[in-house]
Design a protein around this nucleic acid. Structure first.
Lengths: 211, 211
DNA sequence: GTTTGGGTCAAACGATTGTTTGAATATATT
DNA sequence: AATATATTCAAACAATCGTTTGACCCAAAC
């Protein structure tokens, strides 16, 4: 099976789409541009993915496969709570740093006006909630407290996403080197921020909820 | 001067665009749809805004005028630090709750691949940084510590944005009522989270930086 | 009464959108 | 060698994109 490029067409389309969607958004990128970047004929997109939206679905599957595995690996109930949180944040940062484009597409700019996509997203999320609620309990917080859960749940990840979104802008304006050293401090700072924050919530909780 | 609709065409275009851009994104929305929603002829868009992208610029100006004024009003150095932070978060949540569509467009899904837009955004942001760095000092944190600043700065706002982004999804799945009561608890929880987090950073800081 | 100028309109501009077609080519199986 | 299967391709599909045109309406100014 001789190929016109090192990887097969399907994979090249996927990678080209990830890069383009991440930089310019799903709607702003045309299939011709994806095909050109992937060095395939336009019709191959419908051939492999049954349309442009099929690429997005494949991207979501790709992301969640990797993401869920990372989360599952990093959860360790035998570890002390603070160490466990530190580990989670460290792996989370490393993961997003490694798969920045993929993550930004799925966790930041996913189009929520396409029912097809929202439905798929809901399926993927439900598996992750189980893991998160376990961690919640260890802080003495009630995972069934929907309000608290809906506030605290997305805040860590969205903070990290915000950093990566404005990374290229900051690089030019603030002249920061985003090297290993930076991300070491980044991880430590974020861990301190959220560990103290969550402990603060755990202490205050009886005051708000039923004591 | 008789008008075909209560407000003038320019304002109606702006409001229609805010609603549509927020729900479906800048690139996914066509000028014909905006014109239809605003009940004006297509050509009025170029007439008033010099093109589709002109609407986005007007939206950015509209947002930042209101946003900057809110930030400026809420900053009060005479207040105790913790009370000041509480006030900021409360007003921030109220503001975003009131101007959800406007905020989501400008602070979440602004297209960063258009140099014209990025440039305008940079101008708007620089004014806000001054206000933020003053607050930083009050926590005993160094606003010239670019790394720390770039981590902590966007985390609060992005957490709130994440909530509003998935609000409609959560409403259906978790069956939460997003009423005044919810946002009272929301504000309190977020304040506790970040107040403890920032204090934790202030305490730990001498350990990381040069003592 | 004529001119001025802001607002409105249908119609058309060329360019681009995502998708499909049908033939051609290559690989694998029989 | 013949058949079946998978991949590739240029070309065309109808639909939509953002923008512009030139005539038209109408109230205010002269």
């Amino acid at each position: 099976m001789v190929q016109s490029s090192p990887k097969d067409g399907k994979q090249r389309i996927l990678e080209a789409a990830i890069s383009l969607f991440s930089k310019r958004g799903f709607d702003a990128v045309g299939v011709r541009e994806i095909a050109k970047e992937a060095n395939v004929n336009i019709s191959m997109i419908s051939y492999y993915f049954e349309g442009k939206i099929g690429i997005l679905k494949a991207i979501m599957n790709d992301f969640h496969d990797r993401y869920y595995q990372m989360i599952k690996n990093v959860m360790d109930d035998s570890l002390p709570l603070e160490e466990c949180v530190g580990r989670i944040i460290r792996n989370l940062v490393t993961f997003i740093r490694t798969h920045t484009d993929l993550t930004m597409i799925v966790l930041h700019s996913l189009p929520l006006d396409i029912p097809e996509i929202v439905k798929l997203k809901a399926n993927k999320i439900s598996k992750l909630i189980t893991e998160l609620s376990g961690l919640f309990k260890r802080f003495g917080l009630d995972p069934d407290d929907k309000v608290l859960f809906s506030i605290v749940g997305p805040s860590l990840v969205s903070s990290i996403l915000a950093h990566f979104r404005f990374k290229s802008v900051q690089k030019n304006v603030l002249n920061i080197d985003f090297d290993d050293e930076f991300y070491e401090k980044y991880t430590e700072t974020l861990t301190t921020l959220f560990l103290n924050g969550l402990n603060g919530l755990a202490v205050k909780k009886p005051e708000i909820g039923r004591s």
